[in-house]
Design a protein around this nucleic acid. Structure first.
Length: 526
RNA sequence: GCGCCCGUAGCUCAACGGAUAGAGCGUCGGCCUCCGGAGCCGAAGGUUGGAGGUUCGAGUCCUCUCGGGCGCGCCA
């Protein structure tokens, strides 16, 4: 919301230097490094120096002298520094700051998508939080955005999982059976086995019926568990899509047909291949194995086809960085199917966990992991959520579990929430406030004002980078500015009470909006 | 060997190609008769892994190089 500066600079520059619209470079408006230098800085002199063959400081000076607008302008080196008039800020305050860039598109954010063969562990947590914040954000920016969990309830891992439950059932019934090395060893398998024995008269079931129970009930229990865990983390999925259904509804066959029709499929060595090298992949990929089974890749292509069929045209997938190799393949497939550029994969780097300097092994088979449930129980939902997004998705997180528990109070979430609590406290205490007439914003107030005023462009940046970290750091910066304002500027009883009260109110509104995006609680007291 | 991510303060990490590279944690020293001290102020701490290049300007872009992570199946 700095269009007034951009317009003014553009007009003035064109007039003074006789530049046409095409000759006019993009006007970049940034924060001054120090608020005492002004609210905004425009490095226009540097940009035009070559074209005009004039020194940057001369250009900036000339432009600054000829600027017209609700601000004071001053040239420093090649910069034009701009300080907005107090009444302009007051006007911005009365309008409010929450507005989003608007794009057209129906968005589906797919994330977590853990196999229903074990509990959700903290490694999944990062993707869960990143995905949910992105869905919240994109829902405000696009036509709408839905969250989806893809349940891999078909395939080899599930078969192994069911087998593991079955062995535990037999064990519970007194049989002397041994759990194979490659089976799932976690205690939860025993719990599921017990629960199934509670519900069914196991021995009276035929072998086929038994397998159906495992295949349906055991998997369903895992899915419910996943849902509960995610909801404890304020992660709500709108859609749970079953891989089995994708297969049953014939999507893989449709995908094969389409790829064949478009000339992207060929047979070799008894298998059906996708000519993905035509579309940027480094080698061709198998769609149907020589034994007739579909590859996971084919089913995934089919799944994405089905997403598009449901009407989504902006697909966002949040994947762990270990799936990097899958990205070019997926893009190649969607391009082949006629939907280029519709998928964006957000790669979330790994979270490595340490306990007293030793890396914590995360093995699902052996049942060794810290579950997300345990983490949430230990440090709380809000602290857990923030933990995963105080780093950009590109950065690996090194996370000391013991340290995090001990120093839970150092979590930035409390800094943010505390700022909001302080602000609300002022608002609730000033029911019969005086409407003072004094006007004039000091550096602490201006720092807060220009940050609030950056709401829309910060959200645009978050969308561009598809990174919740942008939102979290914005919330942190706002809180930082607020704490400093709070420390130095008294609101209640001040001669500036009216303007300051509005500032506090707008701050609270923006923060609550950010809390909603981030999925953390708005507190009245702490 | 190839592809992607990362390398910045003691540690964990920021910084749309812009001014004096910033926070948190840790260390040291200050601030409540005053809207909540879960806060604020200050000090110490840096050759942005290294070498070239691009340009008015490089932590950021390009090339090379060193170090760490992940991935390179008719697995999922």
């Amino acid at each position: 919301m700095t269009d007034v500066i951009r317009t003014s600079i553009t007009e003035s520059t064109q007039k003074v230097f006789g530049l046409s619209t095409e000759d006019m470079p993009a006007v970049d408006i940034q924060f001054t490094p120090d608020i005492t230098m002004g609210d905004y800085a425009v490095p226009i002199g540097f940009v035009l120096a070559k074209k005009l063959r004039t020194a940057p400081d001369r250009i900036a000076q000339t432009i600054a002298q000829n600027l017209q607008g609700p601000f004071r302008a001053e040239a420093v080196k090649g910069y034009v520094n701009v300080t907005m008039d107090d009444y302009w800020w007051l006007d911005r305050l009365s309008q409010g700051f929450i507005s989003y860039p608007q794009y057209s598109g129906k968005v589906l954010v797919e994330y977590v998508s853990a196999n229903p063969t074990g509990p959700i562990h903290i490694g999944h947590g990062r993707g869960a939080v990143v995905g949910s914040v992105l869905a919240n954000l994109l829902d405000r920016v696009y036509d709408f955005a839905d969250s989806e969990f893809y349940v891999n309830d078909a395939g080899e891992q599930i078969r192994k999982f069911c087998k593991s439950v079955e062995i535990r059932i037999r064990e519970l019934k007194g049989e002397d059976v041994e759990l194979p090395e490659d089976a799932y060893h976690g205690d939860y398998i025993v719990d599921i086995a017990k629960s199934i024995l509670d519900r069914y008269n196991w021995d009276t079931l035929s072998e086929e019926e038994q397998w159906n129970v495992l295949w349906n009930d055991a998997v369903d229990m895992m899915r419910k568990w996943h849902k509960e865990t995610l909801e404890k983390l304020s992660v709500t999925m709108k859609v749970w899509t079953s891989e089995r259904l994708i297969r049953q509804e014939g999507w893989p066959e449709r995908a094969i047909q389409l790829l064949q029709d478009k000339g992207y499929a060929y047979e070799k060595d008894g298998a059906l291949w996708f000519k993905s090298t035509l579309l940027g992949d480094d080698k061709d990929r198998v769609l149907v194995k020589s034994n007739g089974e579909y590859t996971y890749y084919l089913v995934d292509i089919a799944y994405h086809m089905e997403k598009i069929h449901r009407g989504y045209n902006v697909l966002v997938n949040v994947w762990g960085a270990d799936h990097i190799g899958h990205v070019p393949r997926m893009n190649a497939a969607l391009t082949a199917l006629g939907f280029p550029d519709c998928l964006t994969v957000v790669l979330v780097q790994t979270v490595r966990f340490w306990r007293q300097g030793v890396a914590v092994a995360m093995s699902k088979r052996k049942g060794e992991f810290l579950t997300l449930d345990e983490l949430i129980d230990e440090i709380g939902k809000d602290a857990a959520r923030i933990m995963f997004i105080t780093r950009s998705v590109d950065a690996t997180i090194d996370f000391d579990i013991e340290g995090a528990k001990q120093k839970a109070m150092d979590n930035p979430v409390y800094y943010i929430q505390y700022a909001c609590v302080r602000a609300k406290n002022i608002l609730t205490r000033t029911d019969e406030r005086q409407f003072g007439s004094s006007l004039g914003f000091d550096p602490h107030e201006r720092t807060l004002l220009r940050l609030l005023n950056a709401f829309q462009e910060r959200m645009a940046l978050a969308v561009r980078k598809l990174d919740p970290f942008v939102i979290e750091s914005y919330a942190w910066e706002l809180s930082d500015a607020f704490h400093k304002f709070y420390q130095f500027d008294r609101v209640i009883g001040s001669e500036y009470e009216n303007a300051r009260w509005q500032l506090v109110e707008r701050f609270t509104q923006v923060m609550e909006e950010l809390f909603t995006l981030l999925g953390i609680e708005k507190l009245e007291r702490m």
